[in-house]
């Protein structure tokens, strides 16, 4: 069931996920389309998520946006006291205290800035790290990534020991979850682009604007909608890397099917899952920790495809 409508306010709205904002020319959504989108979100009873570009919008836009209860995803340059999620584009600028921050980085950049991650976790409410080159993740990368997460885990553990409750998607989400919690594109989440058309997610818009699934006039029509649901994903429904983004855009890009994850995405998610398990074990050795949560089980695979095909 649809729960969220992501509204890209401009063609240059910040990316907060795996895709790149490939458009460089400003193209602001029309006020008329914005009003229609807000009305539709109210009728469908879904939460609107506004995604901002790196420039200030005309005042009347803020007035229209404020006619609906919504959340704001903004680049650091355009943050304000109402921004719910702040997207950082590099490691130089510290996120504001208490915010939910997203940092997009290549794996190499992440490995280089591990210390920064630990520092930021001391002040932010939550940090989402989005790795932007999942598709080139190799077996060697996996080993490096596992080592990196293990080291990062020691810092996170120390924060817990100090009485903080750090939230880092790569390490703490899986510990807290009891079932799949993924991006939901095409299932619980739909995206409206500045052209007034709907897309499975922003990535589908930037990849091909003709690849829309309806518009503000005709409504949303997602062919083969069931394929975006967990039950129709043979690998994912057998998987317990519950924090995995399960990015349907990456799925389609690498396997040609929205319901089938690539080997790289699975291995990356399982590397995080296993690091999360290790962190949970390590903290529990020192005292009671998440007593209502089951310990993440030990497994002997990094790709559930291998489990299915055994």
């Amino acid at each position: 069931m649809l729960q969220y409508m992501i509204i890209l306010l401009d063609d240059t709205s910040t990316s907060f996920c795996h895709y790149e904002t490939t458009k460089t020319e400003r193209n602001l959504i029309s006020l008329d389309n914005l009003r229609k989108a807000i009305r539709l979100a109210m009728i469908e009873n879904v939460t609107a998520q506004m995604v901002y570009p790196a420039y200030e919008l005309p005042q009347e836009y803020y007035e229209v946006i404020n006619t609906i209860d919504h959340s704001d995803i903004a680049p650091l340059e355009q943050k304000n006291e109402n921004s719910d999620v702040i997207v950082l584009k590099d490691w130089q600028y510290n996120p504001p205290k208490g915010c939910v921050a997203v940092v997009r980085a290549t794996l190499a950049a992440l490995l280089e800035h591990g210390e920064v991650v630990n520092e930021w976790l001391k002040t932010v409410a939550r940090l989402n790290v989005v790795i932007t080159d999942v598709d080139t993740f190799t077996d060697d990368d996996q080993k490096q990534y596992a080592d990196f997460l293990q080291k990062l885990g020691k810092g996170v553990e120390q924060l817990f020991m100090n009485g903080l409750s750090p939230q880092l998607n790569l390490l703490t989400d899986r510990m807290m979850l009891t079932s799949m919690n993924n991006c939901g594109a095409g299932d619980t989440c739909i995206t409206l682009a500045p052209n007034g058309k709907f897309y499975i997610c922003p990535a589908f818009y930037y990849e091909n604007p003709d690849d829309n699934v309806g518009d503000l006039e005709q409504g949303i029509n997602i062919p083969n909608k069931q394929l975006y649901k967990l039950g129709y994903a043979p690998i994912c429904r057998e998987c317990d890397s519950w924090h995995c983004k399960r990015c349907v855009w990456l799925n389609r890009k690498l396997t040609l099917e929205v319901n089938t994850p690539s080997h790289e995405q699975c291995v990356m998610a399982h590397t995080e899952r296993n690091a999360s398990r290790q962190l949970m074990v390590s903290i529990r050795e020192k005292g009671i920790f998440l007593p209502d949560k089951e310990l993440i089980p030990e497994i002997d695979y990094l790709d559930p495809f291998n489990k299915i095909k055994k």
Binding site: Y232, P234, L256, E257, T260, S262, K309
Partner: peptide
């Protein structure tokens, strides 16, 4: 066409995954 590789580069295993996990009910 769905091309899953070629004689020079071999098979792209990611493009085989949907075929190898297909079942009747899905």
């Amino acid at each position: 066409p769905i091309i899953i590789g070629n004689v020079h580069d071999g098979i792209d295993k990611n493009k085989l995954r949907p075929f190898l996990t297909l079942d009747r009910t899905t």
